[in-house]
């Protein structure tokens, strides 16, 4: 399917032109406007699919995980992600039981952390990294922390750790590229934002309503819950 053709557009149509075309066609073929019309229904599916194809071909958005809503990894020590397969032949770095017959090396912790991140076990990765003593916390440590936090949706921790990794190892292109990716959307945003003059407070009061609303809030309410 050629999505541009479906929407009646040129291949170099802008995003806004795509949206206008989508709206126009959706209005025409929407099921509410064509109740019971199977052809309209089919056409609407095509229009939706075409829109998705074009919009989803845009640059990929930084994907952060969502630990709050997904309830994944509710805390540290939530079981090894390596059930059934253990790359380090039968030890658990957190086990204090008798029978752990060797101590884990820092390098092994780093590797386990990397594997945990790949398996999506971000909390586990963080608790592994926490086992590494301060003196052994290299740029790699901060880089892995950034990735684990990204998986958990912790944006502040992601960027702070990514920046720290780059500061400690400025010549590492992998870390630099990673930080670049994180900042990419901010750069794009700032380009568009700069076309507006700086906003100033206090102008354009719409009406007495909003002055009274402001007063109401100052008297009754502070920041939502930080009390």
């Amino acid at each position: 399917m050629d999505p541009y053709k479906v929407l009646g557009l040129d291949r170099n149509a802008t995003d806004d032109e795509v949206k206008i075309a989508y709206r126009k066609l959706a209005k025409q073929y929407h099921p509410d406007a064509n109740p019971g019309d199977k052809n309209a229904e089919q056409k609407m599916k095509e229009i939706n699919a075409a829109y998705d194809m074009i919009i989803n071909h845009k640059e990929t958005i930084n994907s952060y995980g969502d630990s709050y809503n997904n309830n994944q990894n509710s805390g540290p020590y939530t079981g090894s992600p390596f059930e059934g397969f253990n790359p380090f032949s039968g030890f658990d770095p957190f086990s204090q039981a008798q029978g752990s017959y060797r101590t884990v090396t820092v390098e092994e912790l780093y590797q386990l952390a990397a594997q945990s991140i790949n398996l999506g076990r971000y909390y586990y990765a963080l608790t592994l990294l926490d086992q590494i003593p301060n003196s052994q916390r290299s740029a790699r440590w901060y880089f892995y922390r950034a990735k684990a936090n990204q998986g958990l949706g912790n944006r502040v921790a992601t960027i702070e750790n990514a920046e720290h990794a780059c500061r400690m190892d400025p010549s590492n292109s992998e870390y630099a590229e990673y930080l670049n990716e994180i900042r990419h959307s901010s750069r794009e945003y700032n380009q568009k934002s700069q076309s507006y003059s700086s906003p100033t407070w206090g102008l354009g009061r719409l009406c007495l309503c909003c002055c009274l609303s402001d007063l109401f809030f100052r008297l009754c309410c502070r920041g939502f819950t930080r009390n």
């Binding site: 995003d15 806004d16 795509v18 949206k19 206008i20 989508y22 709206r23 959706a26 829109y51 919009i55 845009k58 958005i61 930084n62 944006r155 502040v156 960027i159 994180i182 900042r183 959307s185 901010s186 794009e188 945003y189 700032n190 568009k192």
Partner: peptide
């Protein structure tokens, strides 16, 4: 820097929506 991170993520998703009416005002 952090505010930039959040608002740019917001507008990335905003621009994926098929908004035409009042889009100038929203932007």
């Amino acid at each position: 820097k952090l505010l930039d991170l959040h608002i740019s993520e917001c507008t990335q998703f905003f621009e994926r929506l098929p908004l035409v009416q009042d889009v100038g005002l929203l932007r």
